[in-house]
Simulated assay, not measured.
Amino acid sequence: MPFTPNAPQFLFENYTRNDKEWFKENKDIYEKEVLIPMREMIEYLTPLMNDIDPQIVCSPKKISRIYKDVRLMKDGMFFKKSIWFSLMRPKEPFVSKPEFFFWINPDNFGWGCGYYHIPTPVMENVRTMITDGDETAIKAIKTYDKQKVFNLDGEMYKRDRFPAQPDNYKNWLNRKNLAVVHESDDPDIFFSNDLKERVAADFKMIAPVYVLFAKAEDMETFKN
């Protein structure tokens, strides 16, 4: 089933109320309007994820919990405003992995591929692959450059560390973190029956970027 306006409305009201009892009384709305469409999208994406990388784990358990971690409740808010899922290889404790992700919140929604926080050795592998002209890295950059769906995200260094490289390479090399992200607040897209098909098509198109990250990960594994 597609998302409806009830999904962002519920997330907004639940976050604003910050009331555990209200959430319990309205949990069926959360299940129907948020969780079921999320699960159906994961199910739809599973064959594609298996084609891109058989190690990627696709499961409803990859949907984030709506309750905040008690360690992060310094503001007194019990609930998260955003709900997302992250599809990735089995994750080691406290070690970020490249992932395909999708999120919704009361203000916007979006999807993408990349890191929450790329480990320094993996980032160095990515940079080396780019500067050495590795075919996987060049294909990823060419794929990104010719599309208009995703924006490259990640904090940039204040100083250009690779002045001799082409500008499109610098866009990757001078970042502390890497992800390609599509963000929207267009209700015609969000509430469309074709949303999951669009997400799948975009993930398939940008897959070479994931392949670059996965290869950089594997290089680090082989070192160890």
Rank of each mutant, 00 (worst) to 15 (best):
E135Y: 06
F162C: 11
P208M: 06
L212H: 05
R17H: 09
F3W: 03
F213H: 11
F191P: 10
M88P: 01
I206K: 06
F78A: 12
N224L: 07
G114W: 00
L45Q: 13
I189E: 10
F150Q: 07
K74W: 12
N6K: 13
I130H: 09
M129F: 01
R127T: 04
F23W: 08
R65T: 10
K196D: 07
T16Y: 10
D186S: 09
P166K: 08
D19A: 04
M49I: 00
I52D: 15
V126K: 02
K223V: 08
F191N: 10
T131K: 10
E92R: 05
T131G: 08
K91Q: 14
F94H: 13
L152D: 15
R89E: 15
P208D: 15
F101D: 00
F213I: 14
N193G: 13
A179M: 11
F191R: 09
M41H: 04
N168M: 14
Y157L: 04
E183K: 12
V122Y: 01
P5A: 11
E155S: 08
R159A: 13
S82T: 07
E31L: 08
R127A: 10
G110K: 06
K204M: 11
F94T: 13
R198M: 12
P98V: 03
K215C: 11
N151W: 02
P2T: 06
P93W: 04
N50R: 02
K97S: 14
V57H: 03
K170W: 14
Y30K: 02
L11S: 08
H182F: 14
V70Q: 12
H182Q: 09
V181Y: 08
N171L: 13
R159F: 15
G114Q: 05
Y116W: 12
L11R: 02
F109T: 05
K32R: 15
F109S: 01
R71W: 06
K97L: 11
L72P: 00
K196V: 04
T46M: 08
I104G: 01
S184G: 12
G154I: 05
D167I: 15
D107W: 14
L87T: 03
N18T: 12
R39P: 08
C113K: 01
N50P: 01
W103G: 02
M38E: 07
K61M: 10
W84P: 00
T136P: 05
P187W: 07
D28I: 11
Q147D: 14
F109E: 00
P5R: 03
H117Y: 04
N193K: 14
F101S: 01
V209Y: 01
W103I: 06
I66Q: 03
K148L: 06
D218K: 02
L212Q: 11
N6E: 15
D160G: 01
E220P: 00
P119E: 13
R127V: 04
D132S: 08
W172Q: 11
N6P: 03
D186C: 09
F94A: 15
V34H: 01
F78R: 12
K139V: 05
N168S: 13
N151E: 15
F203V: 02
K74L: 06
D145V: 05
K68G: 04
P98Y: 01
T46S: 14
Y67V: 06
Y144G: 10
D132V: 00
S82A: 15
Y157C: 10
R127H: 10
L212F: 05
I56T: 07
E13T: 15
E43M: 04
F12D: 06
V209L: 11
